[in-house]
């Protein structure tokens, strides 16, 4: 089951948002991949793969979820990606 969403975090999927996202993927217990439309997807539980892919704010990405509750997980992860998670002090 897949869905195309737009990354909302101000600095893209790096640093803290990348950490939070891979943690959410691992916690879901589902097999999840993320990639650019038409591009080769990476394992969404891999923080290294995600950081190296360099997803930026405003990029469209295809999320693909396999598992028993793929619809619920896809919904939660889509919401995560379309929310802005960048925050910093000062």
């Amino acid at each position: 089951m897949e869905r195309t969403v737009t990354i909302a975090s101000g600095h893209g999927l790096h640093a803290r948002p990348a950490k939070l996202f891979t943690q959410a993927v691992a916690a879901s217990g589902h097999k999840v991949t993320i990639g650019r439309p038409g591009g080769s997807p990476v394992n969404a539980a891999s923080i290294l793969g995600i950081i190296a892919a360099g997803f930026e704010n405003g990029d469209e990405v295809v999320l693909d979820v396999e598992g028993d509750e793929s619809e619920r997980v896809l919904g939660e992860l889509s919401e995560f990606l379309t929310t802005d998670h960048d925050e910093a002090a000062g």
């Binding site: 640093a15 891979t22 943690q23 394992n43 891999s46 290294l48």
Partner: peptide, 19 residues
């Protein structure tokens, strides 16, 4: 807090399935 974020990210990198 800020150090924690960095260290947790490093732990995730060490656990990375792709690695």
């Amino acid at each position: 807090e800020s150090t924690r974020d960095v260290l947790e990210a490093q732990a995730l990198m060490t656990d990375d399935p792709a690695l």
